[in-house]
Design a protein around this nucleic acid. Structure first.
Lengths: 339, 339
DNA sequence: GCCGTCTGCTTAACCGGTTCAGTTTCTGTG
DNA sequence: CACAGAAACTGAACCGGTTAAGCAGACGGC
């Protein structure tokens, strides 16, 4: 019960394997009648193309793309972001029988090594890069490897690589004005790592919005997305004499950690402190008080990234794209300043 | 600047490509001197084996394994379990330059389809199956495909497939006796889906432990691991006149949801209600009160699964294995009954 | 000095597809 | 009816590895 090959189909149909190949790939070179017969035999035999064989042919594709997630493993599972992204990527891949190779690394050198290996061993047709950094060394590497790719982040700083980005400034303005309208003046943002491009963009947008709203006590402090960092940073901020009355977190995990610290320190939310989480998730809805959050359609984000990468792999021109913007979902963690 | 092949190495070394293959794979057939020369040339040229070519050779391996995660995408991101598992699997795979194909599906028929496709297209050398069910149809399929595999779950019900399982009964006894010692008598367990084998095993262990501790009001209710289910179930339980004084949840997400419901209903934790989460995670440590939890070493679990699968792929005999058992980490969510 | 064996290498087939260059057959046209 | 041109199909090369079989030369034993 060997797996059937096109040679088996060819024998059964009484034609050459070349003809079978044409028939199965919908190319000219066989009559409509023969094509139907071949397709039927193929389906009867339960034939499926061997992906290694396909990939080996000159100009062949592996039918797989790679995604490296470079975050400490223990913090990662908690961020719905990645799984939603993966889920979106896969809905797109599924349409063309493509697969996703996932690698979780602990640092960027391991990430770069993964790209090099994937390229050298011809394991993927392209990659999706996340968490674009300032002067990101991965860009050069991937360019040099001429590995088709799509960068999530930017625009700018992605060299010749196409990117998919979100303009966070509108949502940021919405958040700041919303909090200002509730009477908050000392708003502090607990940001992600400073080296991420999107962190910087948000920081700029935050300052602009604050200035526009006439707030002169707004600033950002950097943390690393982990719950631990959220805890530490929040504790420090709440211990200040000029304690902020509102905190805006760059991810849901730090926001939940911050909420925990507030409760532990006896700072009541939202009476004495308002909390906003940037990416929304089930988490934000489960904790009490539920967290006001900025929600984005991450699944679509992943789907679009996969589509763009597919185009890049096929050699079609790919231009930078902006995704849908985030929207504010007010919940129980925000309210007027209690004075 | 084509990627170098063994033919390029052969030319540079003045030998045949067969000799190069022997040299690179550490097989006999070339002198030590020639081998060194070939290895050096290979490294100078930056050669790496083409995985499609390797896979295509008779008896060749693709160097990839598959993992399907079959849960609703929106709940999934929150369970640290999977990412930790993936992380563990990958540390093992990295040692042999193997890769992981990940697929997220919404139902089991899609999962089965993934195995069939992977096998037919020769995309993976084997798969790791999670969430073993009672009379699991995947077992038959994977057996029929003669796809090397390791089942996470059992023992029992895995047909001819090797499995890796946890004996939860010890930890369950620990939890129940701990709660009983705190004075709890109405302990209810919010379990995972009834069709999962490990859910049933835990249910049995829970009943045994309860009986042993002399509790006759202990029982399990089933939910589906999502936060929504945790919310609904907890709300129903806390609305009863004979309200439980302690709840044991089968995952961290439902436990956090349960905590939220308690707070919303004015049931104070742990004074009026104690909460235990089965899998520990950052989440349990972040919420207030922090959640008492059963922690397992999931990363090792994944690593061991990958090792076993590697053995199965190489054709070495693989026997069922038990992983390290969970341990109870008491935190702020459990305390004596308030009466 | 002849034979057998071992070492170190070459040659060629093979894996399962794709594709290009021919060859045969069919069709239409002047 | 000859002939061009297209349609339908064949044969073989190719992708980049692995591996069985074969073969030349060295070496040792008797």
């Amino acid at each position: 019960m060997r797996r059937p090959t096109i040679m088996d189909i060819a024998k059964a149909a009484g034609v050459s394997k070349g003809a079978v190949s044409y028939a199965l790939n919908g190319r000219p070179g066989v009559s409509e009648q023969t094509r139907r017969r071949i397709l039927e035999i193929a389906s009867d035999l339960g034939w499926a193309p061997s992906s290694p064989a396909r990939a080996l042919s000159p100009g062949g594709r592996t039918g797989a793309i790679g995604l490296v997630v470079d975050r400490p493993a223990h913090s990662l599972g908690l961020e719905p972001f990645f799984m939603q992204l993966v889920s979106g990527i896969e809905t797109e891949l599924a349409r063309s029988n493509n697969d996703l190779l996932l690698q979780v690394t602990e640092d960027m050198s391991a990430e770069v090594a993964a790209y090099r290996r994937w390229s050298a061993e011809r394991r993927v047709d392209g990659v999706i890069m996340v968490d674009l950094r300032v002067d990101d060394p991965r860009i050069r590497v991937v360019e040099e490897l001429s590995l088709p790719s799509v960068v999530l982040g930017g625009p700018g700083g992605t060299g010749s690589l196409p990117c998919l980005y979100t303009d966070d400034s509108v949502a940021m303005r919405e958040v700041v004005h919303y909090l200002a309208a509730l009477g908050h003046r000392r708003i502090v943002r607990v940001a992600g790592p400073e080296e991420f491009v999107h962190t910087r963009a948000r920081t700029g947008a935050f300052l602009d919005a604050a200035e526009q709203a006439g707030l002169d006590e707004a600033y950002s402090v950097h943390a690393d997305y982990t719950g631990e960092a959220g805890t530490r940073t929040t504790r420090r901020l709440l211990a200040r004499t000029d304690r902020p009355t509102a905190l805006v977190y760059d991810n849901d995990l730090m926001a939940v950690a911050g909420l925990g610290v507030a409760q532990e320190m006896g700072v009541s939310v939202p009476a004495q402190l308002s909390i906003v989480a940037w990416d929304d998730s089930v988490l934000c809805r489960l904790v009490r008080p539920s967290l006001t959050a900025i929600a984005r359609d991450i699944v679509s984000y992943g789907r679009l990234a996969a589509t763009m990468l597919g185009d890049a792999i096929e050699g079609r021109p790919v231009s930078n794209q902006e995704t849908s913007r985030g929207e504010l979902y007010p919940r129980a963690s925000t309210g007027p300043t209690g004075g």
